[in-house]
């Protein structure tokens, strides 16, 4: 094909496709909860697709083209201004909070639940409704001084979530569980694994931050939040222990098996 013909065909084949945008693929993105403890308060900064939470579509693995009532509600919520969406959140709040289980991991399940409250909410302007909107909810729970570990679980319809406890709070050393991905050529592509476990916290080295990916509805490993004397192991003030990649993001690959992520 001559370059002129090629250019001509290029012009002919350029087609408008912008009308095909939709809400598809929003359910792929996990929420992120950054968890910290200050004295007797556990704070959870939840970065999330608030519209997906309220419409309870987060856990779906349905085909993109499937129209569901949740998808329609999502679209309506996505078009709301921040104040209006916050009003919707306030109306839905009791359902949301009852669907989140933050538990004291050291006592029996029946009496372990820690009551959560919503402190603040930050919702961006509407922007491009074809894109997900990231809102931030600040949740809080009072904890007694003797609680040394908590777990997190929320309803499956809120989708997947990444939990990130702030490492060793109030301590100078801040190992934030950073991974370096290099530029070396990958000769034999490695496979995402769901069996990798980071046991650094248990191996006697410096405790790592707690980071865990949770598929929809699954309960986290215990996140250590124990108040330990400075003379304790490694001089740790608050010890955060977890198998940071027990489920691993490879679990996302399993969860997404019918979707290309």
């Amino acid at each position: 094909m001559s370059s002129a013909t090629r250019l001509f065909s290029l012009m002919l084949l350029a087609m408008p496709v912008s009308h095909m945008s939709g809400v598809q693929a929003h359910e792929l993105r996990p929420s992120v909860a950054d968890i910290s403890r200050s004295g007797q308060v556990v704070q959870i900064e939840l970065s999330t697709n608030l519209e997906a939470l309220i419409s309870e579509m987060g856990g779906g693995e349905h085909d993109d083209s499937t129209e569901t009532p949740q998808a329609e509600q999502y679209r309506q919520l996505r078009a709301l201004a921040p104040d209006a969406l916050e009003t919707e959140l306030r109306q839905y709040l009791s359902t949301l909070l009852s669907g989140i289980s933050l538990d004291d991991a050291t006592v029996s399940v029946a009496e372990s639940r820690l009551p959560l409250s919503l402190e603040t909410v930050s919702i961006p302007q509407v922007g491009d409704t074809g894109q997900a909107r990231d809102s931030v909810l600040l949740l809080q729970a009072a904890v007694a001084g003797d609680i040394n570990a908590v777990t997190w679980q929320w309803e499956a319809h809120y989708g997947s979530i990444i939990l990130r406890a702030q490492a060793v709070m109030n301590q100078a050393s801040r190992d934030t569980d950073v991974t370096s991905i290099g530029l070396d050529i990958v000769s034999s592509p490695k496979t995402s694994t769901n069996s990798k476990a980071d046991n650094t916290a248990d191996s006697g080295s410096a405790p790592s931050a707690f980071t865990q990916y949770l598929p929809p509805g699954k309960r986290s490993d215990p996140m250590g939040l124990a108040l330990v004397s400075s003379a304790g192991r490694g001089g740790v003030a608050y010890l955060v222990i977890g198998l940071s990649a027990l489920l691993g993001i490879g679990a996302i690959a399993l969860y997404r098996r019918r979707k290309r992520g």
Partner: peptide, 10 residues
């Protein structure tokens, strides 16, 4: 999508 050490090879 987030930074994901298990998903990123290079």
């Amino acid at each position: 999508l987030p930074f994901d050490p298990d998903a990123f090879a290079r």
